[in-house]
Design a protein around this nucleic acid. Structure first.
Length: 198
DNA sequence: GGTATGATTGACT
DNA sequence: GTCAATCATACCA
C-alpha cells in the first residue's frame, strides 16, 4: 500500500472494503480523538441502513460525496458519527463505533466525569460525546477543520463480525474490529470472519 | 395533527 | 437479566 494515497480516495469505493480499511485510522474532532478500532458498514442495498428507503432530509449527507460526515441523533439522546463512503449518491456510510482516546484526553475526561478511560469512546453514543460531535458536523468534510482523518501507517489485524443494535440484516458480517482491542464496544468477537488489512 | 420507532446507554432487580 | 430515558424522523389520517 502506498502512503501517498489520499484518505478520500480510499473511501470512494465499496463501503464494506472502505469500512475494513478505516480500522486503524486516526480520527480527531478539534484535536480530540484517536485510532479507530471499531466500525460498521451500511449500504443502500441494506435493510438496516438509513439510506435503504431513499434519500430524506435526515440522511441527505449519506448521499453526498465520500469523505464527509453523516451525523444523526439516535434514540433521541445520542449523536452518532458516520463516514460517507462509496460513490456520491450511493447512500453508503461507515458508522464509527469506537476509537482509542489518544488525543485531547483532558477534554474527554471533562466531558465524561466519573467514567473510566476505557469507556470514554467505547460505543457510538459515547464516542459522540467524547469527541464533541453534534448536528453542526452533519455533512462536513472530514479532511478539513475541525476534523482530522489520517490513514493507518502499517498493517492492521481486523476481525469481521455481525453488526450490533440492529434488527434487520443482522447476519451480515459488516462490523470490523481491531483484533484484541480493549477499546471496542463488544469484545464478543465471533471467529471465522477474520481478515487482515494493510 | 397524532403516533410509532430507533445504527444506545445507564440504572436498576 | 430487564427496562426507562428522550426526541427527530417517518408515516398515517
Amino acid at each position: 500500500m502506498s502512503a501517498a494515497v489520499a484518505p478520500c480516495a480510499l473511501l470512494a469505493r465499496d463501503v464494506v472494503a472502505a469500512a475494513r480499511s478505516l480500522v486503524g485510522w486516526t480520527l480527531l474532532v478539534d484535536g480530540v480523538g484517536g485510532r479507530i478500532v471499531e466500525v460498521e458498514a451500511y449500504d443502500q442495498d441494506d435493510p438496516a441502513s438509513h439510506s435503504h428507503d431513499g434519500r430524506t432530509s435526515r440522511n441527505a449527507a449519506m448521499f453526498g460525496p465520500p469523505g464527509r460526515a453523516y451525523v444523526y441523533r439516535s434514540y433521541g439522546i445520542h449523536w452518532l458519527l458516520n463516514v460517507v463512503c462509496g460513490e456520491e449518491g450511493h447512500g453508503a456510510a461507515v458508522l464509527v463505533r469506537a476509537v482509542i482516546p489518544e488525543h485531547g484526553r483532558e477534554r474527554i475526561a471533562a466531558r465524561r466525569p466519573g467514567v473510566g478511560e476505557r469507556d470514554w469512546c467505547r460505543g457510538p453514543g459515547r464516542l459522540g460525546v467524547a469527541l464533541g460531535v453534534g448536528p453542526q458536523h452533519d455533512g462536513a468534510r472530514l479532511d478539513a477543520e475541525p476534523f482530522t482523518l489520517r490513514a493507518a501507517c502499517g498493517p492492521v489485524a481486523v476481525l469481521a463480525t455481525p453488526r450490533i443494535g440492529i434488527s434487520r440484516a443482522v447476519e451480515r458480517p459488516w462490523r470490523f474490529v481491531e483484533a484484541g482491542s480493549v477499546y471496542a464496544s463488544d469484545t464478543r468477537v465471533r471467529a471465522g470472519g477474520a481478515t487482515s488489512s494493510g
